[in-house]
Every structure is written in structure tokens, then in C-alpha cells.
Simulated scan of single mutants.
Amino acid sequence: MSERDSGSSDRARAGSRGKASGQASFGAFVRKPVERPDDKAKASVANAASEAAEMRAETAASWPADAIEVGAIVDAYGLKGWVKVAAHADAGQGGDALLSAKRWWLLKGQERRSAPSLHAKTHGDSVVASLGGITDRDAALAWRGCRVYISRSEFPALGADEFYWVDLIGLDVVNLAGLNLGKVAGMIDNSVQSVLRVEYPATDKSGKPVAGERLIPFVGVYVKTVDQAAKQIVVDWEADY
């Protein structure tokens, strides 16, 4: 008798003895394959990838401390769940973060969610994207009006003498004589150049405190240094300009 036949006979006799003793037979069985360590690792990676591809609920505590609002979902795009986003800024000013970020943070009313960006591209003057967890047009339409945030750490790196607008807001503006001209309250794009909108404390004709405003072109002839570590911009600009 071959070794295979011997094994088959042994299984049959084991079933017969079970029946003879009044016990239920377990029948034939297949031995469970030995699980190798690399199998567990592959399963873990697969599970992590599956979870990362889904939208998830977030709270104020899990929201990134460096989250920057970069746009809003204004419509659905196509039939497969893509969304259309109106970016708050153009490329180089924070808008391109929508194209490179791996995860978008979504806020609609009090509801907070985050979703992986599976694919994003420019489309005319907007950005369209496929997000994990949004699989059809109806689901995409349900997110209209949602504000989109990106973690500042996911903004694309810039070259020398390039700055994101969000990094300039709040910096002190000082002229070459050391006079503080105020703080950057915002930026303006006049289609020719970027302009610093600098606010400073002032008073109106009645002596009531108001916020004064200076507009300084963000160009090399006026802006001499930007020191983000010192939170200061030095400009060639006089207080009475």
C-alpha cells in the first residue's frame, strides 16, 4: 500500500470508529496552512491601505493644528463622484496644495470629515477631484458648500524668495528706519502683482480708534527681506506714503 493509500485508510477507519461508539463523525478535514510572518505583514498593509482609502469622521481634537482653508466644494463633476472646488488662491498662493495633498479635511456646518485625494487636477478656473468614500454624483452633490482644508505640512515646497500668502499674514512690517508700519492683514492680487495689505492702529477725526491701512506692492524694489522666523518683513516704505 502506498503512503497516500495508508493515510486515506486511516481517515476512513477514524470515521468508522466514531460511528461505532455513537459519536458524530467529523468527516474529512483540510489542515490549515501555516501562517507565515510575511503573510501577516501583507494583510496588515492591505488593511491599512483599505482604511486609508476611505472617508472618515473627524473631531475638533483630531483636526490638524496647521489646517488651512484653501477652497470650497461648489458642485459635482461628472457621474463617478468627482467634486468641483473653487480654490481661494491660485497656484503658488496655496491653491496648488489641492493638487498635491494626500488628504483633504472637509467641514460642512458642524460635520467634520477627512478623505484621501485619489486624483485631482485643474479644470478651467477650478479644481476637480476624486475623493475616497464619494463614489457617485449624488454623494458628490451632498458635499456642496463644504469648506476644504489642507494641512500646511502638505503644501508643495517653494523655491527661494517664494512665499505662500498664508505665511505672510500676521507678520510685522518694518521700514528701513526701523519704524513699525503695522501687520500684514491680507494679500491682494491686482493681476499685475501681489500687494501687502498692512493694518495699523489709527484714530478717526473724532479721535475714535480705527484700523488704518497701507497697501505695499510685494515686489523686490519695496520688499527687502522676509524673515519668517523673526515674523518680520522689512520694506523700503515711508509711513506717510
Rank of each mutant, 00 (worst) to 15 (best):
S6G: 07
S9P: 01
A14K: 14
R17C: 09
G18C: 14
G18S: 15
A20N: 14
G27I: 01
R31I: 14
K32Q: 12
P37D: 13
P37V: 12
D38P: 00
A43V: 04
V45Y: 04
N47W: 08
W63D: 07
A65R: 08
A65L: 04
G71C: 07
A76L: 00
Y77S: 15
G78V: 02
K84F: 02
A86W: 01
A87W: 12
A89V: 05
A89S: 13
D90A: 12
D90I: 11
A97D: 11
L99G: 08
A101H: 03
A101L: 04
K108G: 02
Q110E: 13
R112T: 06
R113L: 14
S114V: 04
S114T: 01
H119I: 07
K121M: 14
D125G: 15
V127E: 00
G133W: 02
I134E: 01
D136P: 03
R137E: 08
A140L: 04
S153K: 15
F155H: 10
P156I: 10
L158P: 09
A160H: 05
W165L: 07
D167R: 03
I169N: 06
L171V: 02
D172A: 08
L176N: 09
V184L: 07
S191Q: 14
S194Q: 08
L196P: 02
P201A: 05
V210Y: 09
E213M: 13
R214A: 00
F218S: 10
G220M: 01
G220K: 11
Y222E: 02
K224A: 06
K224N: 04
D227I: 09
Q228P: 03
A229N: 11
K231D: 10
Q232C: 06
I233S: 05
I233G: 04
D236F: 13
W237F: 07
E238G: 11
